[in-house]
Amino acid sequence: MPLMASIITVSGLTKSYASGFQALKGVDLEIEEGEIFALLGPNGAGKTTMISIICGNVRPSGGSVTVAGHDIVRDYRGARSAIGLVPQELHTDAFERVIDTVSFSRGLFGKGRNDAHIEKILRDLSLWDKRHNKILELSGGMKRRVMIAKALSHEPRVLFLDEPTAGVDVELRRDMWKLIAELRQTGVTIILTTHYIEEAEEMADRVGVINKGELILVEEKTALMRKLGKKTLTIVLSEPLSSVPFELAEWGVSLKADGHEMEYVFDTQAERTGVSSLLRKLGDLRIGYKDLNTEQSSLEDIFVSLVHQERAA
């Protein structure tokens, strides 16, 4: 990976809490400028700990992180200036007005007043009409937008979104996805954590899977799905079957829809998928079919199987 393209470099990052709990066990990760990177993992996997360390809210135990070429400890000013953080919880100053709290954030990050920029952010986030409202008067979704506006107020190069759609209704989640896609157009690198697979699937360029403090895998989303994806072949039968013929046992097929459909799950990366042999066998057995359909498995299936492998190991 060319060095120029990396905006964040994480090397051997570890974190042990005072309780002795090891939240991160030596994580290495490169984030490329301009990409959307989804950090996926179950609750307690270390997602938030990693983000918190990079952003300055938690102290690392070992290893190093650079952001835009600045070490997060030695040159924290340089590193933090490049980062906007939207934490998981809705932490707001309830009595402040929207425009004040967003302007405050800009100042906190050392940037001079820029009314045009603040206006643009508030308009982009549909907050402009509410700019004089106190935050406590806003709905949860609007509060989340305020937090994003704060994070963007100082024109960061990297935006961290920690569980951006946790506890958000479906419509708002769609809105959020649209928003993130728009942000990406402006060249901002986006790192989001989620345990909703569909979120990563919808938006991310690359996916990292973290479990128990270890980064199990980092892969381009499409490659990941190709590589680890299973496909389901659905065979619509001419005549329903009451049970699976014993000759088909080695494929492990199952019957669906009252015997009208036969399902076969195969691994796309296997040398032999078993599809053609299965179809040949069906011909031999004189089992007629009128339609075939294959379906790609989702990131969710991939994720579940990865985490299970980990647990089994």
Binding site: C55, G56, N57, R77, H91, L108
Partner: peptide, 14 residues
Amino acid sequence: FTGTIYELLSAPVS
């Protein structure tokens, strides 16, 4: 108490 300290801690402020 409110949690807004996250912003101060993540800001380039000594």
